[in-house]
Every structure is written in structure tokens, then in C-alpha cells.
């Protein structure tokens, strides 16, 4: 690669984030005075600082070769989905079904994983959760769908 696309992309993204933060804080929060600083003072300053640093990262990256690093897209998407499912299902399905479901989703990107293996794994992890968190730690969790905690 002729350009360091990672630093270029991230520098730009950080700069945009910085400006957005500064702009939003400037518009929404009071800046105050030196004696009684308002809630906007810090975020605005930090946003501008981040924007500056983003530029410092991006500009040198234009003329510098970068190394390609593969991005694990399938794994990222699967793990994020698994967590979202866990978060959204916990209150509705209870911990045991949620765990089984989450493990099934998460294990879909596991190398050499057949459906049979995944079902075994999800049963094992569910049992582990039951032993450790419900029996051992006595954590207050919804156990079954709609069941009182």
C-alpha cells in the first residue's frame, strides 16, 4: 500500500468525531466563565484537541506506506450480534434460553464447528451458567421466560 490507510482513516474519523463533539457541546451546553466553568467548556476544548490530534495522525499517513491488516468482519458481526441478542433477550426469555441462543450464534463462526458440536457446547455453557451464577452466586436474574426473578 502506498498510503497508510489505517492511520489515514482513523485520523480522519477522530478529527470528525472531535469536531462533532465540540460542535454539539458548543451548541448544547453553557461555556461559563473561568471562575465558574460551564458544562460545555471541557467537551468543546477536548473536541477541538481530538480534531487536532486526528489531523496530526492523518496528514503524515498520506505519504507513508502502510501495512495491510486483515479485518475479521464475520467474527466482528457475529460477536456483536451475539451480545445484542443477549442484551435484548435476557429480560424476555430468561437467562437459560438466552445463554443457549447466544452461544449458538457466537459459535457459528467457530472453525470446524458442526451444528451438533454447537448444540453440545450451548448445552454445556448453559449448564455452567446455571451452576455458577444461579446456584453459586445466587445472582438475581430472570430464569425462564416471564418467570419472576
Amino acid at each position: 500500500m502506498r498510503r497508510d490507510l489505517y492511520d489515514l482513516g482513523w485520523g480522519a474519523a477522530l478529527a470528525v468525531t472531535g469536531f462533532t463533539v465540540a460542535g454539539y457541546a458548543w451548541a448544547s451546553y453553557d461555556m461559563g466563565s473561568l471562575r465558574r466553568m460551564g458544562p460545555g467548556f471541557f467537551p468543546v476544548t477536548l473536541g477541538l484537541l481530538l480534531a487536532g490530534l486526528g489531523a496530526l495522525i492523518a496528514i503524515p499517513a498520506m505519504s507513508r506506506p502502510g501495512r495491510f491488516r486483515p479485518f475479521a468482519w464475520p467474527e466482528t458481526i457475529t460477536v456483536v450480534t451475539a451480545l445484542l441478542v443477549f442484551g435484548l433477550a435476557l429480560d424476555r426469555l430468561g437467562i437459560l434460553l438466552t445463554t443457549a441462543l447466544t452461544v449458538l450464534i457466537a459459535s457459528s463462526v467457530a472453525p470446524r464447528g458442526g451444528l451438533g458440536w454447537r448444540l453440545v457446547l450451548s448445552a454445556a455453557v448453559t449448564a455452567l451458567v446455571w451452576v455458577v451464577f444461579l446456584r453459586g452466586l445466587n445472582m438475581s436474574l430472570p430464569v425462564w421466560p416471564g418467570a419472576p426473578r
Binding site: 451475539a82 451480545l83 442484551g87 435476557l90 447466544t102 459459535s107 451458567v129
Partner: peptide
């Protein structure tokens, strides 16, 4: 190991203040 870790992370985060929002 990793599917179990994911579950443990979720429950660990949940245990702090019982919030599913934090898992998201």
C-alpha cells in the same frame, strides 16, 4: 472457550447494576 467467555462477560457487566443496556 470463547462462547462461554462472551456469556461470562455479559453476566459480569450485567451484575454491576442489572442493566441490559450496558450489555448492548
Amino acid at each position: 472457550l470463547y462462547p462461554a467467555i462472551i456469556i461470562f462477560v455479559c453476566l459480569g457487566v450485567y451484575s454491576v447494576r442489572g442493566s441490559t443496556f450496558d450489555i448492548v
